[in-house]
Amino acid sequence: MSTTVGRPAEVLLVEDSPGDVRLTREALKEGKVRNNLSVVSDGVEAMEFLRREGKYKDAPRPDIVLLDLNMPRKDGREVLAEMKSDEQLKRIPVVVLTTSEAEQDILRTYDLHANCYLTKPVDLEQFISIVKSVEDFWLTIVQLPRS
């Protein structure tokens, strides 16, 4: 899909902070990959989106999930665990993007088969640069399985 010309990359952002949603949106806007950003604000909605349930029955299948860890109702760790144990979803790359620098969060996340763990930098320039790197790496460099 990374090479699919014409179709914009489908990005699902699971994030409860509107500020971070906006920052990510701005950063992706500055990137060079055409993308279609969908946003859900907690883990329950994220699973509904991924499983195309309820109001998400027409949701696109994401090419990549950007996942925050600390969220209400169902947190990012639970979403990750559910995705990676679901035959339909396990191959979607999950990039954990969080403020936590805690060692146990990093270990736990990789144990749950996250594809990468990133800490949100405090500085805007760095944040933009990280989001661009994610976009660049996961949407243009990496070969991902089809569907």
Binding site: G19, D20, E26, T99, L124, F127
Partner: peptide
């Protein structure tokens, strides 16, 4: 956390 918001959007 909130400071990051203030900083980011001021910088933006």
């Amino acid at each position: 956390e909130p400071l990051r918001m203030v900083a980011s959007f001021t910088q933006l």
